[in-house]
C-alpha cells in the first residue's frame, strides 16, 4: 500500500496517475469499494478524508474498515488531504473528524511501504 498526502488542490491525483499510469488505475472517489471484480490494475482511493468524514457522520468505524481493506488490497494507493494543520474548530464534529483522520493516517503510514507528500504537484518521499 502506498499513501499520498498533501494539502488541498496540490495535484495529488494527477501525480498518482502520472506515476502509475491512468489506464491501469481504478479510481474510487471518496469511496471504499466492498468488492472489486476486475483484478488487474491499481486500486486508487481518492479523497480518502471525505470517506472518513462520511463514516464518522454515520457513526461508522472508518478505522476498522480501512485497515481491513488495505489487508485485502495490499497494492492500493490511498490519497488524502492533510486536515489537521489549522485552528481547532469550534464544532465538536469537525474536531473529531480532524483528529480521527490524522490518527488513521498515522496508522496507514506505519503500514504503508511508501509515503509521499505532494506539494505543487511534486512528490516528496517521506517514507
Amino acid at each position: 500500500m502506498k499513501l499520498i498526502i498533501g494539502g488541498y488542490a496540490q495535484g495529488k491525483l494527477n501525480y498518482v496517475l502520472e506515476k502509475y499510469g491512468a489506464e491501469a488505475s481504478k479510481i474510487f472517489d471518496g469511496e471504499i469499494p466492498e468488492n472489486i471484480e476486475e483484478k488487474r490494475g491499481i486500486v486508487v482511493i481518492n479523497h480518502f478524508h471525505n470517506w472518513v468524514k462520511m463514516k464518522i457522520a454515520h457513526d461508522g468505524c472508518p478505522e476498522r474498515e480501512i485497515f481491513e481493506f488495505v489487508e485485502k488490497y495490499p497494492d492500493c494507493v490511498i490519497i488524502s488531504d492533510e486536515v489537521g494543520n489549522g485552528i481547532v474548530p469550534i464544532e465538536a464534529f469537525e474536531r473529531e473528524y480532524r483528529e480521527r483522520t490524522g490518527r488513521i493516517l498515522v496508522e496507514l503510514a506505519k503500514k504503508a511501504e511508501e509515503v509521499e507528500r505532494v506539494i505543487c504537484g511534486i512528490g516528496q518521499k517521506i517514507k
Partner: peptide, 8 residues
C-alpha cells in the same frame, strides 16, 4: 511541530 492528530 505538527498538526492535530499528526503523532507529534
Amino acid at each position: 511541530i505538527g498538526g492535530s492528530g499528526s503523532g507529534k
